[in-house]
Simulated scan of single mutants.
Amino acid sequence: MSALSPQRALRRIVTAAVVFLALVVTVALAFHRSVPNVAGFGSVLDTAAPLLLLAVPVLILGAVLARTKVAAVAALVPLLVWGLMFGRAWLPKSADQGATQLRVASQNVNAANPDPAATADAVVATDADVVALVEVADGLREPTADAMAAHYAHHVRVSTVELWSRYPILDYAPVDTALGWERALRAVVDTPEGELTVYAVHLGSARPGVTATRDRSLRALADAVAADPARRLVVLGDLNTAITDRVMAPLRDLVRDAQADAGRGPGATWPASLPVIRPDQIFYRGLTATMSTVVRTPETDHRAVVAGFHFG
């Protein structure tokens, strides 16, 4: 029995590697929610799951080098699974959503921002009627306010979270998100179409292996929204996780996602230079989302998120 030529042996090795990697990626995509959330690992995997698409070009390159049908088929399986799970975000949205009657925006200003006025000017340029700004540290308040106040007559603040509005803010109060200090607020805005309840929030930070604070603050926010009797409601801010994260489920069961309903693609916002995930969210209920987009803003590490709504 003749030995395999070196070239043929290499092709077999590459084929086996492609099949193995394709299997790992496919299983990770299909069953990431089944991985135990020990030390926040499952949560991190949930958040990163859409990024597994980046493995597909590597697999395709391997299949080209292997030049075997088995490798070619294996390379396409993760792409198919990814498309079934996340591809709908790229599909065109319904055209019968109504005219935009109110625009909202959210921006993480970044506590280390060297020019917060430039960031605020870019947010103003989105023409949003209601704006949530988070991570507005002490030294950023005055320049931010100078830029915003010329366009928004109404303003409230709780700690480093601010809400700016063209329309009167009838009432507001801090929201306890179990951080030990206040970093969220609930306000009632008197829009021309009726009252709208707005949550401006900045949830606890999360790092690989350290997500307990974020998870606790997310549950507290979900509890507040669940108990809120408001018919029309939006949640704006930096939630420090993506909608694919399992810990988002208690809140996602109560609201809709403007990006999923009226945007195109995942709407990634962080890091601003090359965004790969979307921790900045616009959720809603009692309204119809008419548009959703992401805007590059200067001097901050997050892009802004903008959404439009119809009150009908």
Rank of each mutant, 00 (worst) to 15 (best):
H151T: 12
R12N: 11
V14E: 06
L51C: 11
D257W: 02
A17T: 06
Q101G: 11
D245M: 06
D129K: 05
L251N: 02
S34K: 08
P114N: 14
L54K: 08
D96P: 06
G180I: 10
N110R: 15
A268H: 02
D171W: 13
A105Q: 04
T288G: 04
N110T: 07
D96C: 13
V198S: 02
I243C: 04
P250R: 08
R33D: 04
R186D: 00
A224S: 12
L51V: 08
T297N: 09
V234L: 01
H302E: 09
G40S: 10
H302Q: 12
R232A: 07
G40M: 06
A89L: 15
A63F: 02
E182W: 04
P6V: 11
S159H: 09
L51G: 05
A145G: 07
D253S: 14
T144A: 09
N240Q: 15
V225N: 00
Y284M: 04
A105L: 08
Q101C: 11
L84Y: 07
R256E: 11
L4Q: 09
A120D: 06
L52A: 02
S159M: 10
V35I: 13
R207M: 14
G209E: 11
A22M: 07
G83D: 06
R141S: 06
S2P: 09
V156H: 04
G312C: 12
L287R: 03
N113H: 06
D96N: 14
V58D: 00
A137N: 09
D115I: 05
T100W: 02
A49K: 02
A145C: 05
S165E: 03
P6M: 15
A128W: 00
A222C: 14
M291F: 04
A111K: 04
D261I: 05
D223R: 10
R67I: 07
A89C: 15
P279E: 14
H310R: 13
A200C: 15
P250T: 08
L76T: 03
V306G: 01
S2R: 12
L10S: 14
V104A: 06
N108D: 15
Y172S: 14
P250M: 09
A230S: 13
N110F: 07
T269Y: 05
H154N: 15
Y172G: 03
R33F: 01
T300P: 02
R214A: 08
A120G: 06
T241R: 05
V305E: 01
R157A: 09
V276K: 02
T100Y: 02
A66V: 13
T68G: 07
E193Y: 12
A22P: 01
P168Y: 13
L163N: 00
S43F: 00
P279F: 07
